[in-house]
């Protein structure tokens, strides 16, 4: 009896936390179907028309396209830089290696406003015009971290003898990379890329300091809320972003969580 009570209250607690986390998002989704411009509960008239409005809004379209471009570019740049940094730090033994590892992770912990302000004044000082490229550079600073962390964690879990075995069997360094290293880190790269993409896509603070006249989608949302003229349309856009972001995050979670994909040294335990 007491155990059942304990279990029930535990469930209640979990539901409470989930409600706390997701009720605001649910509200936004719900009000996206409200015909009224003013949000009042209960909803009087249900409608899908705001979806049509958002879909045909050229500002939304432009912002969405810019966000996608910036996220793609930042992800690809981070894939290259982050995995190379991971290889370097993992492979080499040099003085200050741990400090470099910390410095690489720091941008994720650093408040976005600091990264934003720093980048902004650096661009000004260097005389670089704010554009999509400065957004990409800004996003890459924290996207690198996700890739770096994912790849180095995988490399640390991978037995070094796999690389030795490959060389022993006659493979050149390039062949070893292609046939052993790359497949081993592939899922880490994919899940890192998806997370980086999601991070970049919904970033606001760094973007405000690195974007020029153009709006990314989160910036457009931010501006529209402040103006308060198009709240139902904002709700619809946010709903679409939530749905879109769910997919890569789910895939990423599956890839890193599933032991079927994680390479293990399948040896040490005797039969």
């Amino acid at each position: 009896m007491r155990r059942r009570l304990a279990r029930a209250s535990l469930w209640l607690w979990v539901l409470g936390v989930l409600f706390f986390l997701f009720a605001p998002i649910a509200t936004i989704v719900l009000f996206g179907f409200d015909r009224s411009n003013v949000e009042t509960w209960p909803i009087q008239h249900w409608t899908l028309s705001w979806y049509s409005v958002a879909w045909h809004d050229p500002q939304v379209r432009a912002a969405f396209a810019l966000s996608l471009k910036a996220a793609f570019a930042a992800t690809i740049l981070s894939l290259v830089l982050g995995s190379m940094a991971a290889f370097g730090v993992h492979r080499a033994r040099f003085f200050g290696r741990d400090s470099i590892s910390l410095l690489l992770i720091l941008p994720l912990a650093l408040p976005g406003i600091i990264t934003g302000v720093a980048l902004n004044s650096a661009f000004q000082w260097a005389g670089i015009q704010l554009s999509i490229w400065t957004i990409i550079v800004g996003h890459t600073t924290f996207c690198i971290v996700v890739i770096y962390n994912n790849v180095i964690a995988r490399l640390r879990r991978t037995s070094n003898t796999l690389l030795e075995a490959s060389a022993d069997l006659g493979a050149t360094a390039v062949q070893t990379f292609r046939f052993v290293t790359l497949p081993t880190i592939a899922t880490a790269l994919v899940s890192g890329a998806l997370l980086a993409f999601a991070l970049s896509f919904d970033e606001v603070i760094v973007t405000t300091f690195t974007a020029g006249a153009q709006n990314t989608l989160p910036i457009w949302i931010f501006g529209a809320i402040r103006l308060g003229q198009q709240l139902p349309e904002v709700n619809v856009v946010v709903t679409m972003v939530v749905v879109l972001m769910f997919i890569p995050i789910l895939i990423a979670a599956r890839l890193t969580g599933s032991e079927n994909f994680a390479p293990r040294v399948a040896a040490t335990q005797p039969k």
Partner: peptide, 10 residues
Amino acid sequence: TVFQDYALFP
């Protein structure tokens, strides 16, 4: 070489 941990490619 036959390695102690076998080093088979998983």
